[in-house]
C-alpha cells in the first residue's frame, strides 16, 4: 500500500428507529388540511366525501341535540357489558385450559373449531335465541371477545416459565398460591395483549350487532347514515368509532403501565 492517507467514513447510519414525538400529529394535521383544501376547492366533491368541517358540524349538531350522547352511551353500555361478560368467561376457560390437562383436552379442540367462525355469520342465530333486543347485541360482542381472550389466556399460561413454578414448589408454596402468585402474574402480559385485541373486536362487532333492530348506538348511526346517504353523519360516526378505539387502546395502555411496571 502506498503511504496515502485515507479517511474512514462513517457507514453505520440509519435503520435505527428513534421516537419522533410530533411527527404523527403533524402528519395527521397535514392530512386533515389537505382533505379540507381538496373539499373547499371542489377537487373532492361533497357528493363523494364530506369535508372535515361538514363532519365537524354534523358532530356539533348531533352533540347539541343530544343524539350523539344517546348513540355513544348506548354503544358504550353494550360494549362494556359484552366485553366484561366475554372477557370474564374467556379468562376462566383460558386459565382452566392453561392449568388443567382435562380442561385443555376438552376445551382446546372446541375453542379452536369455533374461534375462526365470523361472529357476524352467527347473528341470525343469536337473534333467534336472544331476540332483537339488547341481549343479542351484548351476546354478539361477548362471543366475539370470548374466544380471543380464552386463547390468549391459555397461551399466556403456557408461556409462564416452568422454572418459576418449580422454584415455588421447592419453597413449599401450595398449588393454589402458585396459581395466584406465579401463574396469573406471569400470564398477565399475554392476557392484557389478548384483551387489547378483544377490545378492538368488540368495537368492530358493535357495528354488526347494531345492524339488527337497533334504533340507537354508534353502529346504528353509521348504518342509518349510510342508508340515508348522509355522508357527513356517516363519517362522523366513523370518527366516533375510531375515537372509541383510541380511548380503549389508551385505557389498556394505562392498565399495562400500571400492572406491568416490573417489565
Amino acid at each position: 500500500m502506498p503511504a496515502e492517507k485515507q479517511p474512514v467514513p462513517f457507514r453505520g447510519a440509519g435503520f435505527d428507529p428513534t421516537p419522533r414525538r410530533f411527527a404523527s400529529w403533524i402528519a395527521f394535521a397535514g392530512i386533515l388540511l389537505a382533505w379540507q383544501a381538496a373539499s373547499s376547492t371542489g377537487l373532492l366533491p361533497e357528493l363523494f366525501m364530506p369535508s372535515p368541517d361538514a363532519v365537524l358540524s354534523a358532530l356539533a349538531r348531533m352533540s347539541a341535540s343530544g343524539e350523539l350522547w344517546l348513540h355513544l352511551g348506548t354503544s358504550i353500555r353494550r360494549i362494556v357489558l359484552g366485553f366484561l361478560l366475554g372477557a370474564f368467561a374467556g379468562l376462566l376457560l383460558g386459565l382452566a385450559m392453561g392449568i388443567f390437562s382435562m380442561a385443555r383436552a376438552v376445551g382446546l379442540p372446541i375453542v379452536s373449531a369455533l374461534f375462526p367462525i365470523p361472529k357476524i355469520a352467527l347473528l341470525p342465530l343469536l337473534i333467534l335465541w336472544f331476540g332483537i333486543g339488547e341481549t343479542s347485541k351484548v351476546a354478539t360482542i361477548a362471543l366475539g371477545v370470548f374466544f380471543p381472550t380464552a386463547v390468549a389466556a391459555k397461551t399466556a399460561v403456557d408461556g409462564v416459565a416452568r422454572n418459576l413454578i418449580r422454584m415455588a414448589q421447592s419453597f413449599g408454596t401450595p398449588a393454589s398460591a402458585i396459581v395466584w402468585k406465579i401463574v396469573l402474574p406471569g400470564a398477565l402480559p399475554g392476557i392484557l395483549g389478548g384483551l387489547r385485541i378483544a377490545a378492538s373486536i368488540a368495537l368492530i362487532l358493535v357495528t354488526a350487532a347494531e345492524m339488527i333492530g337497533a334504533e340507537y348506538g354508534v353502529g346504528a348511526l353509521v348504518l342509518g347514515a349510510g342508508n340515508l346517504m348522509q355522508t357527513d353523519k356517516l363519517v362522523a360516526g366513523v370518527v366516533l368509532l375510531s375515537l372509541m378505539g383510541l380511548a380503549v387502546s389508551f385505557g389498556i395502555g394505562l392498565l399495562e403501565r400500571r400492572l406491568l411496571r416490573w417489565r
Binding site: I127, G131, I132, M211, I212, G213, A214, L223
Partner: peptide, 21 residues
Amino acid sequence: VSLKPLQTVPNMVAAMKGGQV
C-alpha cells in the same frame, strides 16, 4: 311506534314469525 331496522325483508319475516315484532 317502536321501529326496528332489520336490514332485509327475510330478517323482517323471521322477526315477525319469532314474535319479536
